[in-house]
Structure formats: C-alpha cells, structure tokens
C-alpha cells in the first residue's frame, strides 16, 4: 500500500538558517509516527510545514510533501485551505491558548463543520454535542455552551481534539499534545487519540519529547537532532538497542520507572552542551556533544545507513549495544 504521507528530503530555510534539513519519512493510514527530539530540533517546524503554515520568513527550500498523491508544497493557497481541517488536522501544544476565548466551544466545533461540511447551524450543533461525547466530556449538552475559560486544561485539549477530528481527517498532526497537561491527564488524552486513530483510521504524526509517550503509543519513531533525522526505528528496537549516540543519551537521560527511580538515587545522566552548539558546525551536528566523536566526524554529515530491517541511523561508528554487557550499556 502506498504511504498516505511521504516527506522527501524536506529542507526548511529561514534567511539565516536551515532548521530542518533533508528530512524524509513516511506514514501509512492508521499508523502513529512519533517524531522525537529536544527543543529546537525542528519538530514543530516540520509539523507546520506539513500544514503549509510555516512562518512568513520560512520557506520550503527543497523536498516534497506528498499527501494522498498530491505534493502539498505545490498546492495553491485555496486548495491547501480546502485540505486543512478536512483531510489534515492539527492539535497544538497549548490547550489554554489554542481556543478562541470569546466563542463558546460548541460554536467553535460547529464552525469547522459548517465551513467544511456545509452543515446547517442546528445540525452542526448536534454534531458538536456528539463530538464532545466522543472525546468523553461529561454532560456535553451543558458543556457545549461553555466558554474555554470555564474548562480545565485537559478538557480544552479534548475540545481541540474534537475540533480536529470533526471532519474525520486522514492525517492528524499532534504537536506535543500533552506537554502542557498533568501527567494523569496525559495518558487519558493519548489513549483518546489512540482510540480515535483506530476508529477513524487516521494516520497520526505525534510530535513529542517524551520518550515514555513514544514507548506506549507510537508504531514508528523518528529521532531528530538539529533538523536532521538521526535515527528511525520501531519503538521496541529503539528502546532495547538505541544505535545513535544521541538516542542513547536521550534514553540515559530519562528516568526508568521499572528501576523505581527516585531523585535521591543521584542525578540523571545528561547530554553535555546544548543543541545550539550544532549551529555552524561542519560535519555531524551532534559531534560537539558526542562522547564517541572522532576526528573524522567533522569532515562530513553522516549519511543514513540501514543497519537492520526497519531501521535507519546516521552514525558510521555505531555498534549495537546488544553486543556489549548490559551494565556497560546503562552507564552510557
């Protein structure tokens, strides 16, 4: 089956920088692709590029975004507007500010239905209540007339999801949908997204920096660093056998719940330096922070290689840690 969305060599250019370079990935119907990386790695820009909503100064310098056989980078404004909300929808990070504060949530949900499905206002309101029920908001008949400030953060994110899935999109882009929510709510919201993905046969691009989220909800993981894809794998492979030094660093820097982690056990390992050090770097962007860097790393940007089935990694010196003793792997 042809993938629903295929991104090829996407490069996003600002006048002075290229925050996303040569990014390729694909996603099939009903699949969840997680894009992981720290702040500044180009995840959110990639999401905006998929929607063709990049900031004014940015433009797509190279590459194509093929969605259902059409190249989104070549579509006109009107055709793209036609796709947005109807076939591609997006959920944003901040539920507190992503809803219009002066409109009731019912009218905000109804509006997207009226715009795209040309429903009458009465029918749209009925559908809005159904959608609120679908995203499990209690007493939707009453809540439909609430203003956003009357709802909690988790509820607002549910409303955002209701708006996003109102027209049954084929692709849902969730840009850190749970970052602003309490941990208890995060799981509920992600479960809801997962249920909706199955029911509506949506493809989901899940952008996150939370590896726990990836482990639980993703079918495929792309790890980004400084605008490039540095590793791609199935979640199981990624967690059992991270190949790129950056992925290993990320994993080492996250608390492991099965070990009953407690802050008094000592500090978490961290990756030294920051992503800013990748700016102006020739060669591997991760080199200044890499504990395995060699002189040759500064010569050219490492190419993606295929070390195993369904895997890609952009580091020529990687060795599977399955080969080394487990204890050594933990002290990366």
């Amino acid at each position: 089956m042809a993938p629903l969305l295929q991104v090829d060599n996407l490069t996003i250019r600002f006048p002075r920088a290229e925050p996303v370079r040569d990014l390729s990935f694909e996603i099939s119907q009903g699949e969840t692709l997680a894009i992981v990386g720290e702040s500044g790695s180009g995840k959110s820009l990639t999401a905006l590029a998929l929607m063709q909503l990049l900031p004014r100064a940015a433009r797509i310098a190279n590459g194509s975004i093929s969605f259902g056989g059409r190249d989104l980078t070549k579509l006109g404004a009107r055709e793209m507007r036609h796709l947005r909300g109807r076939e591609i929808a997006m959920i944003f990070q901040e539920p507190m500010t992503s809803l219009n504060p002066v409109m009731t949530i019912g009218r905000q949900i109804a509006e997207v239905l009226q715009v795209h499905e040309k429903l009458s206002s009465r029918a749209a309101r009925e559908r809005a209540i159904e959608l609120l029920r679908l995203v499990r908001i209690p007493a939707p008949e009453k809540r439909v007339d609430d203003y956003p400030h009357q709802l909690s953060g988790g509820m607002r994110q549910r409303v955002m999801i209701a708006i996003a899935v109102a027209c049954k999109p084929k692709l849902l882009i969730a840009d850190e949908p749970t970052t602003a929510l309490d941990v208890t709510i995060q799981a509920q919201v992600l479960d809801l997204l997962d249920t909706l993905r199955r029911e509506l046969q949506m493809a989901v691009v899940l952008i996150t920096h939370d590896l726990g989220v990836v482990a639980q909800w993703a079918d495929k993981v792309v790890v980004m660093y400084a605008g490039r894809k540095v590793e791609q794998a199935l979640p199981d492979d990624l967690f059992n056998d991270p190949l790129h030094p950056y992925t290993r660093g990320l994993l080492a820097a996250s608390p492991r719940l099965k070990h009953d982690f407690h802050y008094r056990d000592g500090a978490l390992t961290e990756i030294p330096g920051s992503i800013v050090s990748a700016v102006g770097e020739t060669g591997c962007p991760f080199r200044p922070r890499c504990n395995q860097a060699r002189a040759s790393c500064s010569h050219h940007v490492p190419q993606l290689t295929v070390p195993a089935e369904d895997r890609l990694v952009a580091c020529p010196f990687t060795t599977s840690i399955k080969a080394v003793p487990h204890a050594a792997a933990l002290s990366l």
Binding site: L53, L83, R84, F92, T97, S98, N100, E111, V115
Partner: peptide
Amino acid sequence: DFVVAARSLGYGHARIIFREILP
C-alpha cells in the same frame, strides 16, 4: 495560538479576521 489553530482548520481570511480576531 488560536489564530494559528483557525488557520490550521482551513478557515479563510475573512472568517479569521471577523470571527476570530475582531471580537
């Protein structure tokens, strides 16, 4: 954010100006 969200829903300029921003 809510204006970006409105654009992501495929709303036209007039709708965003008069229904989202102006109020």
